[in-house]
Amino acid sequence: MTIKTLKDLFIHDLSDVYSAEKQMAKALPKMARAAEDPKLVEAFKLHLEETQGQIERLDKIIESTPDLRLKRMKCMAMEGLVEEGQEIIDSVEKGPVRDSGLIGAAQKVEHYEIASYGTLCALAEKLGYTEAKKLLGETLQEEKSTDEKLTLIASQQASLETVSK
């Protein structure tokens, strides 16, 4: 896809994040099964539900904006981040160390998504896509909230590690 205008960039980035969310919808159940900490398992399951809602929001943006059509593409960044998470699952025994690795992998994803949705919100505003900006902003807030929850779980794990030594 040749990108010449802000609208082209918006469509490209929207297509990219759509692919990213679809990949996460497939990865999150694996991450939940691989985790041991019940709070982490629950966080992954909750984020799967949110991710499905985020995909629905993206569909709503496309449906409500007639001049937007997603491009068929694969988000290579998300593919790499998902692969990193899979490497943790494959190479680390189930337990607190794997959980810490999974939290790190998930937070890398969240930070990527936060950057993506922040950019999309700014582009939507510049292009006058008011409804798209609102919907993208809702997703941005969910991604930030998920990142905060993962940080809390990680800090609670670190506290338990210190107590158990």
Rank of each mutant, 00 (worst) to 15 (best):
E148F: 01
E83T: 15
I89E: 11
V92P: 11
I89Q: 02
T146S: 06
A34R: 06
K108D: 00
I88M: 08
K7E: 09
M78R: 10
D67I: 12
T2N: 06
S91N: 13
E36Q: 13
K60E: 09
T119N: 11
V163E: 13
E93P: 14
D99A: 13
E84C: 09
R98K: 15
E110M: 07
I55L: 11
I55C: 11
E138L: 08
Q156N: 09
R72S: 12
L48H: 14
I103D: 03
E63M: 01
A105Q: 05
I103F: 00
E131A: 13
L127I: 09
L102D: 03
D8W: 05
L40A: 04
M76K: 13
A158D: 12
I89S: 08
Q141I: 10
K4M: 09
E131V: 00
R98S: 10
L58H: 05
D16H: 11
L9H: 09
L160C: 00
R57L: 10
I55K: 06
Q52E: 15
L40Q: 04
L81H: 13
M24H: 02
A105T: 01
K7W: 02
I62L: 00
E56D: 15
Q86W: 13
S15P: 04
T162Y: 12
K7L: 11
Y117A: 00
S145D: 12
K30F: 14
A35P: 09
Q54E: 15
V92S: 04
D99M: 10
D37G: 11
Y129G: 02
H111I: 11
A25R: 07
M73C: 08
A35V: 10
E87M: 12
E79C: 07
G104W: 00
E110P: 09
C121Y: 11
T162C: 05
T5K: 04
V163P: 02
I103C: 00
I55H: 06
S91D: 13
G101V: 02
E49C: 07
E110N: 12
L40G: 02
D13W: 00
A20N: 08
H111G: 06
E42P: 03
E113A: 01
V82D: 12
L14D: 00
P29Q: 03
A124G: 03
F44C: 00
D37W: 06
I11S: 00
L40K: 05
